[in-house]
Amino acid sequence: MIDLHGYGPRLLEGAGVTLQLALLSLLLAVVLGLITAVAKMSRSWIAHRTATLYTTVIRGVPDLVLMMLLFFGGQIGVNMITDWLYYQFDIDIFININEFVAGVVTIGLIFGAYMGETFRGAFMAVDNGQIEAGKAYGMSSSLVFRRIRFPQMMRHALPGLSNNWMVLLKTTALVSVIGLADMVRVASEASKATREPFLFMMVVALIYLLIASVSEWLFARLQKRYSIGYGEED
């Protein structure tokens, strides 16, 4: 058995933090992605432009820079608001942009932009005839969205979703730089204290590979599910 010098439990805890961070960011990214996709396809000029600006800017700036901007700068911005509330109305609230929140929001924002592209492509891949058929049956447009466009879109979006998730998972490592005790942070502290960087970094690399392989398997199953009714070639 490998000797982790007593860092085993903290490393496991860190892995938990990494997973939570990744899943919450994914959730936020999917929500933002759907909104962006809908906005980009909308006829409203403002919605379209806003969504385009969002995806362009976010995809042009490194994740780490955005994260630091939000973590260090976001707090000051939020405080301006809460300080104002305090002096104006004697309401004393404190909103803490901690490392975890900064991480979830940044990663969610970044991948929301990528997801937006994925979802847009997937929506457009849904056969128009199907939507028309739904309307012909007297379905309302929200029902058409729920019953026809969304489930069909998911089938087309899954490969892109899976890709984005794999990249997102690795991006969580950056949060260790702003101080969140995820598994990378724990491993780097441990490797400095014990002078064994190979050991701890390898362990963390293996955990990442493990999560990636499990997700690959899960996505393959999902893909099968959403492809019911389509030939094997899909």
Binding site: K170, A173, L174, S176, V177, V184, A187, S188, P197, Y208
Partner: peptide, 13 residues
């Protein structure tokens, strides 16, 4: 499959 940050740490340290 692994973060670049880990690869950097591994090589640097």
């Amino acid at each position: 499959g692994t973060p670049l940050l880990i690869q950097l740490y591994l090589i640097y340290y």
